[in-house]
Design a protein around this nucleic acid. Sequence first.
DNA 1: GCCGCTGTTTCCCTAAGGTGCAATAGCGGA
DNA 2: TCCGCTATTGCACCTTAGGGAAACAGCGGC
Lengths: 215, 215
Amino acid sequence: MNPAVATVYIVDDDASVRRSLSRLVRQAGMDARDFASAEEYLLSREKPLQQPTCLVVDLQMPGLSGLDLQSELARRLNKRPVIFISGNADIPSTVRAMRQGAVTFLTKPFEPAELLRAIAEALEKCRKQIAADAGMNDIAARIGELTEREREVMSWVITGALNKQIAAELGIVERTVKVHRARVMEKMRVVSVAELVRLCDAVAFAPAVRPQPGS
Amino acid sequence: MNPAVATVYIVDDDASVRRSLSRLVRQAGMDARDFASAEEYLLSREKPLQQPTCLVVDLQMPGLSGLDLQSELARRLNKRPVIFISGNADIPSTVRAMRQGAVTFLTKPFEPAELLRAIAEALEKCRKQIAADAGMNDIAARIGELTEREREVMSWVITGALNKQIAAELGIVERTVKVHRARVMEKMRVVSVAELVRLCDAVAFAPAVRPQPGS
DNA sequence: GCCGCTGTTTCCCTAAGGTGCAATAGCGGA
DNA sequence: TCCGCTATTGCACCTTAGGGAAACAGCGGC
């Protein structure tokens, strides 16, 4: 409902924990949604990631564990930050969780403030991710507007190649390269090669043709 | 002595642990150096970081703890990967260690192979860091060769500004900008603006003059 | 005071980038 | 078959980038 507000997804098999955490989160002014298992969360997935969100996941759960959920999220490229909570965790699990990018790992019992602090950090991380994704998508969309030939020309332009070199490489005349190049600059909405290079590097735009492996 | 070999620094207050870990490391074909305390390691510092190295640190030690050592290393910009080992660690310490970038955290007793695997990972990470640092230093050195004016002109060039715009901005004639620009390209050893942009972005070269905060 | 480095400028010329206009050609869809 | 998109090219013209040659000026060091 509230589009500007953050949402915390709580995944825990213990109903009383879900209730108390939800209450805590809501009292702090955020939305809370809870799930009784990793599977339940995975089935409910709302992919977009438009709004800052994060997960608070119990380590031990019947079925998929918290670590399994984290791995699955990574596999699905779901970049929501994860906070683990656990009553009796061991070091190896903690290490694995952190290595896989968990924001933190809290052991029950913990101070409510401690969780809220972790949530704040996770949401901030998520906001940055959203902003970064938005930028990347924007650039990718522009690249998507290019024709194959234009992409090809662009891949040469961002290496600093001269029009005549590009022309020779593609077996066409320089005038044609200029036409493609102009369209690239227009569609990518840049006015200088410097900007074009930055956009392409930001999304790791790769050539396809350039790296001549043979010769 | 052996310049091509990796070295593992072992920091543990227990002499028998130091002996056994050193033996393990040497048997695996790497050099080992051990220290009885964090302080001892910090005093022995050989700064360069030319060769792949990593640290294996005990969490609990008299004086500075393993975590303290890790923090101090971070403060000193010593980027050697750290592997923690501990007999009786708790989750918060593990989380803190991992958040601060530890490669992993092993609890004693652990399989020798497990430590060797972690060391291999840490050394690989170190190699990449060394390579990245070398690249950055190389670029930074070139920027260091530039005069103030040349750096100023470069900061404008990498934004895609035209010579005439730069000239107007600096209150000089276009021909002068061309002179500086040519020296920049020469000293930075690039032949295109595209390459120059990449070098500058790689080291996060910032302007100094550009972001006019006032007006 | 002379020398070297840096920054600056003027005159002039070539090469490369960028555009407008016009035309040809292949291809897939209405 | 005509239309629209994409790719291509030729011609002419203007703007930028890049240099060569020569010179002047401030500054710190010998």
